[in-house]
Design a protein around this nucleic acid. Structure first.
Lengths: 351, 351
DNA sequence: GTGAAAGCGCTAACAG
DNA sequence: CTGTTAGCGCTTTCAC
């Protein structure tokens, strides 16, 4: 069980080191008879090439990094990131890459991080989750020759490739659905407004309310932070405005809204309808189950990886911008099966 | 911004490559004056050593792997794994290691995995989450010289080091608490009984019921799978037995139980009390909030990493076995504030 | 305390 | 198609 090297395999197979290397890397120019013989020896000996030696010689580590900044890593308990990570991991396995995870906890770590991921010879590329707008990590990365792709829309970095969901259209559709159902005092619990996703979903809400003949009312808007608890307090404030419906920018926040509504002895959707964003597992088990805009989170993870590989192979220019559509999933929380009010309005509405 | 090497730094500082290497690796035998000069040059140039070259020469990659097997990775959406991962990541950052993640999706991937993690020159060590009992990965690892540590108690691999929580004592205490409060028809939703944690928590339940004078009743036991949905169905079955309390082997499963109880128009804790295990965020926001056994998940993650580093430095023998205690966190779901019944029994109970 | 020299195990021209 | 020959950039004896 001692450490075998290419040389050893070469000797046993009666060929040169280069030939074994060719076989291992599936390169042409090896007689198939010889190839078989070498393969046989490799199998018998259980030989595995030495990863570091390979990286050093080939300038490829087959390692990619996933960076989750401090501003969002605390919500690693939101099912969103684990799900995204699963998608990325799946693609890594498929393409024979290894995924390394950089979860930043403190500002200090965040500073050190750059040196870590930029360390030559470690990573072939990086997937970065956008954090707050103005995060400098992405800017710095753009001034590097490290291939990278961003999860979510970055701001002020036109050269960056990214994969995102159409947040504006998604929330526009979610809120439009509520309007179709006849609700008119529609409040929203937004994501953090210093993130692009938070802003975009808020923008969709505004457009829907505005274009569909309702008037915008700042009192019906409360900023959340994507956590259940944050949304719970936000909802308590909104309750004073007596909304008849709420658009929450994530499922987790809808859960918080539900809790606040329940504690106020109001019912969903009877007194207040709720629609949210994500369609992660908690949406199904909530009480009532949530009507929500589905994001293909896992597929986005796969696409992030594939885009990164594309950049590694073919260069970062021009930047790739991939936008996934969302899909309205109707469950109990919006009251669409409620009867009279819903149906009446639906019939008169155009789309 | 061209690639600097040790040699370049050496030239600029007017010393030899070896000296720069010593400085970088904090080795002795460098005059502090020289050390300063070299440090200065490194700073000015922004030099970073090449990771692969370093690994190759030093036989250390400063990379460790975290393996989550197929049997549990699907519950990566349970907050448990993300939280554990955060603990490990935090320790990795602290000790300047990079964490790579191996999430297995298919049996095929599971087979290929071993070759991946055993690939020489890639990982310095591995943290493996136990999956089903009899998982061969841990056995195979034990026949290797790859340092590793197991998250959870493995079975039949006496040489393996592991970090676990005292599941038996934890569930014993949880169930004892219910008994103190006066409940007597106590059902349980277990974890998968082909896992050690599932078995251990079930064992704690049995011991408590048995030693405290109640009789075991198999009809009050339903096997769950750590998911909300699985527990929801398990609870529906248990409901036929008219239990007055339930011990769920995880918070997520308690949520499923709550849903089934609610749909049966029964109340918690009025009709049925609930106690669970984990104390992850959903425990706080559940309705009612869950009384649960707290596991120090994050600290366990840190300890896993520290144990692995210890093994890397000092060898795997003797095996380390680290068991964390759990702590009962009382919230609304167990009815301890309920008044008469609870108080009466509490006063008569001894502990 | 410092430098010279010999690898670590592989890939990648370049001959043949 | 196959083998020879240089490195990849660093750590690590071993002299001095």
């Amino acid at each position: 069980m001692t450490h075998l090297t290419l040389e050893d395999i070469a000797k046993k197979a009666g060929v040169s080191r280069s030939t074994v290397s060719r076989v291992i890397n599936d390169k042409p120019n090896v007689r198939s008879e010889v190839r078989q013989r070498v393969l046989q020896v490799i199998k018998e000996t259980g030989y595995e090439p030495h990863a570091a030696a390979r990286s050093l010689a080939s300038h490829r580590s087959r390692l990619i990094g996933l960076v989750i900044p401090r501003t969002v890593h605390t919500v690693f308990s939101d099912p969103y990131f684990p799900r995204l990570t699963m998608g990325i991991a799946q693609a890594c396995n498929q393409y024979d890459y290894t995924l390394s995870l950089f979860l930043l906890h403190t500002p200090d770590e965040e500073r050190k991080l750059f040196a870590r991921i930029a360390r030559r010879g470690l990573l072939d590329g990086v997937i970065v989750q956008v954090g707050q707008m103005g995060d400098e990590l992405i800017c710095k990365l753009a001034n590097t020759d490290m291939p990278f792709v961003v999860a979510g829309r970055p701001v002020n970095v036109p050269a960056a490739s990214y994969v995102d969901v159409d947040n504006v259209a998604g929330s526009y559709n979610a809120v439009s659905h509520l309007i179709h159902l006849g609700y008119s005092r529609i409040g929203t619990i937004t994501g953090p407004l210093n993130t692009t996703a938070g802003q975009d979903r808020y923008e969709g809400y505004r457009r829907a309310v505005d274009r569909r003949g309702l008037t915008l009312n700042d009192n019906l808007v409360a900023e959340g932070d994507y956590t259940e608890t944050g949304a719970y307090y936000a909802m308590q404030r909104l309750l004073e405005q007596k909304p008849d419906a709420i658009f929450a920018a994530s499922d987790a926040m809808a859960l918080g809204a539900l809790r606040a509504i329940r504690e106020a002895n109001l019912s969903v959707p009877g007194d207040i309808a709720v629609v949210s964003f994500d369609d992660l597992p908690p949406a199904v088990t909530a009480n009532p189950p949530l009507t929500t805009m589905r994001q293909p989170v896992r597929r986005m993870g796969v696409k992030l990886m594939e885009t990164l590989l594309d950049i590694i192979e073919n260069g970062s220019r021009p930047p790739r911008r991939i936008i996934f559509d969302t899909e309205l999933v109707i469950r109990g929380s919006c009251g669409s099966n409620l009867g009279a009010r819903a149906r009446k309005v639906r019939n008169t509405a155009s789309s």
